[in-house]
Design a protein around this nucleic acid. Structure first.
Lengths: 206, 206
DNA sequence: ACTCCTTAGATAGTTCTACTCTCCAATATT
DNA sequence: AATATTGGAGAGTAGAACTATCTAAGGAGT
């Protein structure tokens, strides 16, 4: 099964032919190899790419233009670190345009990163998400303390170590793709488990 | 500042008057107390509610109809556990309609919950999210092992205990609202910290 | 060679979400 | 009395993600 036509690509990916054409137009799927003016053949890579696109939209909840940027990052990345960094740079927060964080929140985030021994440009999007979320929690009169941030960090440190260590492949291309999957598609697992844990803890406390 | 008119509610919440009217129509904001045929007065609760709505859309990334369902859960909940359970029941996955999970994935989730000593109806939405995500990861040829699930559970257990323990208020109403905030609005904090941790671990490994 | 079917490529239309605008009559305010 | 604001209802709009239609060019079977 080295190559296939559009109809089979649609069948293998579970998407309709018009949807795949739309993804081609939007630059989410590289064009097939043209075998004439009205024919192009696709291969296994195209099937994988389409499945990844759907995972990033349906499971990770990304918008298509974000998916496109993340995929461009995959295609251009030279290492695991590049790929993850590139993906994170393009992510920001799930919702709408983020207002700039307050100075106080930015300072708290800087102190937090310092406490954890983590280096990160202060202009990194995830630092901005952190600071902005702290602001929103303050506005909701539900401020979170530095102890919670440190607890989150303590919880995520071994998780991150395991996840990064799990992707030790010689194949750079698939390793880079695995980085994005491991970061974005596994997020719902972590959140679902947190929710389940919360429900069980709260039940056990009456 | 016991009560205010629409114009001031708009100013205090940062939303436009038409948007607030829209939220009233959609049942996201309870109506003010009418003081005549063309006048209604709003209070501090309305300001808080509007801020919560924006936090749930902008920060937690929920859609408005999901927000409405979650808020209805708050208004009807009798306990922390009820509120969180109700919110989780209405959440499902971030993206589109979820296909039913495979039998194998459902079995793995059941075994996982059993290993962790967690009780949860097999029909609980978060269990379905878990199973469905496992299926998607398999389809992406990026299967995750039970060890990762157990690692996530070990990481989330102390987090959940701290979070649930942090909400010990005598005021039931604000406690129930705090449950939803603590669950949903704090999610971006956890995810951002995971991403930052991943980047630092991967940098430290070269 | 002839007919039928599929495809690439382009354009236009649809559905859904979350607003945003416009009106109107009924008040408040000045 | 003149002006401004509000509640309520309906229509209109912008963006995202498809979906449908059309055309011309191949290719497949006979």
């Amino acid at each position: 099964m080295l190559s296939m036509w559009m109809a089979e690509l649609a069948a293998r990916s579970g998407l309709s032919v018009p949807t795949i054409k739309y993804y081609l137009r939007e630059g989410l799927l590289p064009p097939g190899t043209a075998t004439g003016a009205t024919r192009a053949s696709y291969d296994e890579e195209h099937v994988r790419r389409l499945r990844l696109v759907r995972a990033l939209t349906d499971v990770a909840g990304l918008r298509l233009d974000t998916v496109r940027q993340v995929l461009e990052g995959i295609d251009g990345a030279g290492s695991w670190h590049d790929a993850v960094g590139s993906a994170h740079t393009r992510l920001g927060s799930p919702g709408a345009a983020t207002a700039p964080p307050s100075e106080g929140a930015a300072d708290r985030v800087a102190a937090f990163l310092d406490r954890q021994g983590w280096e990160l440009g202060a202009d990194h999007p995830q630092a901005a998400v952190l600071a902005r979320t702290l602001d929103v929690l303050d506005e909701l009169e539900h401020p979170v303390g530095d102890d919670l941030l440190d607890l989150y960090a303590a919880a995520m440190r071994p998780v991150a170590e395991h996840e990064v260590g799990a992707v030790r492949s010689d194949d750079l291309e698939s390793s880079v793709e695995a980085a994005v999957i491991g970061t974005l598609v596994q997020e719902p697992l972590l959140l679902a488990i947190r929710r389940i844990a919360q429900e069980n803890v709260s039940r056990s406390l009456g």
